[in-house]
Each structure stands twice: as structure tokens, then as C-alpha cells.
């Protein structure tokens, strides 16, 4: 039994979570400050992947990244590689699908932040980045951690968009979720069951670790 799907799923989920962490926080921080109308419009756009079926997201990604699309052609000409049907295309799919979870939780917490703390920091001479990382982020830490957990769990369990942009190639693009489906499809219930258990185990361990961090704070 190859453990490639485990390795691949974990690296995709981890890299995607790191990207989502920074993108989600950045988007939340700037969108929370925009005028109401623009905020409302951007909010719809940035939250859409949460409510759309992942296959629709996958379809849209293929429309942008596909080998016959301008971006796909450009990347192929520049780097000699396709953007789709690779393991890292799954990172992109996971980022798009899980991003709204981080964005929404971070935005909610930024909006409840007491701005006088930032003002106090400014009048005491702190740099804006110090205020952001040492005052705003610790204040919002609980929600941000919740956003990270949700994003990681969502990225780890991503199937629809991932299977469309990366497909299923054993030892190349296979993830736990695509492997479960493929094994079940060929009537290997035992193999599928093992991967289901592995997935449940990882998710439970991850949630336990984060719960204990939460309690310590």
C-alpha cells in the first residue's frame, strides 16, 4: 500500500492553509475598512466559493488555467509545464474553496476589534506592522485559530475541485479523498475503508491539538 495519498493530502492542505492564512487575513483587514457598497460586493465575491458546489469552482478554475486557455498556454511556454493535472493544482483548488472560511472568520473578528487599541499604539509610537501583529492579531487570535482549523479541515477534505483540476493519478496527484473514491469505484472497499479511517484519525488529532492550544490561551 502506497502512502503517497497521505503525504500528498497533508502537503496540499498545509501549503494551502499557509496561503489562505495570509490571503484571508489580508483580504479581511482591507475589506473591513472599505465603504459599505464596495464591501458588500467584494464580500459576495470572496464568499462565493463557500456556497458554490466545488465542481463549479473546479470548472471555473479549468476555464482560467486549462492548457488551451491564455494563462495555461503562457505558463506552458514559460516553464514547460501544464497548470492542471499536477499535484500543486490541488493547492490552488483548496485555496479557492477553503479561503472564505478564513476570510469570514477573520473579518468578523477584525470588525469587533476595539480600534482605540490601535490608536493608543499609534500615539505611543508603534509601527503599523507592530500594531497589526502584536495588538490586533493577538486580540483576534481565537477567531483566527478557528479560521485556520476550518480551512485546514476543508482543504484536507477537498474533493470536487481537486479531482477536476488534478484528476487522479496514483503516486502523482492522488489525495486521500480522491483515493477513497477511486478505490470504492473499483470495489476495493477494504482499501477505501483504510483511507477513510486515516482521514478521520488525522482530522480528529488535528482538532484535538488545536482544542488544547485554545484551552491554554
Amino acid at each position: 500500500m502506497s502512502f503517497y495519498p497521505l503525504y500528498n493530502s497533508l502537503r496540499i492542505a498545509m501549503i494551502a492553509t499557509v496561503i489562505i492564512f495570509f490571503l484571508g487575513i489580508m483580504a479581511a483587514y482591507y475589506v473591513a475598512r472599505l465603504p459599505r457598497l464596495i464591501k458588500g460586493l467584494l464580500d459576495v465575491l470572496l464568499t462565493l466559493p463557500l456556497v458554490l458546489p466545488p465542481t463549479v469552482v473546479g470548472y471555473l478554475l479549468l476555464l482560467i488555467l486549462g492548457p488551451k486557455r491564455p494563462l495555461g498556454i503562457l505558463i506552458y511556454e514559460l516553464f514547460g509545464t501544464k497548470l492542471v493535472m499536477t499535484w500543486w493544482a490541488s493547492i490552488l483548488a483548496s485555496v479557492v474553496v477553503a479561503f472564505p472560511l478564513m476570510y469570514r472568520t477573520a473579518r468578523g473578528s477584525f470588525e469587533s476589534f476595539d480600534e482605540t487599541l490601535a490608536y493608543a499604539g499609534k500615539t505611543l509610537g508603534f509601527s503599523n506592522s507592530y500594531i497589526f501583529w502584536e495588538i490586533r492579531m493577538p486580540y483576534c487570535a481565537k477567531s483566527i485559530i478557528a479560521g485556520v482549523v476550518l480551512s485546514f479541515a476543508r482543504a484536507l477534505g477537498e474533493y470536487g475541485a481537486t479531482s477536476m483540476v488534478s484528476g487522479y493519478t496514483p503516486d502523482r496527484t492522488a489525495t486521500i479523498s480522491t483515493t477513497v473514491y477511486q478505490l470504492w469505484r473499483i470495489n476495493d472497499e477494504y482499501g477505501a475503508g483504510i483511507w477513510v479511517l486515516i482521514n478521520i484519525f488525522i482530522s480528529a488529532v488535528f482538532l484535538l491539538i488545536l482544542n488544547s492550544i485554545e484551552k491554554k490561551r
Binding site: D114, T116, Y119, T123, A141
Partner: peptide, 20 residues
């Protein structure tokens, strides 16, 4: 001039101590 460079202290009504 940015507030950081004004050297003007501000005591807020709620004191704005950093909670963490």
C-alpha cells in the same frame, strides 16, 4: 504628520490597555 511621529500622548476614556 503620522501620529507615531507627533509625540502626543492620548489617555483614552477606556484607557486602551493592550488586553493580551
Amino acid at each position: 504628520v503620522r501620529p507615531q511621529n507627533r509625540k502626543v500622548a492620548y489617555l483614552f476614556q477606556n484607557y486602551a490597555l493592550f488586553p493580551q
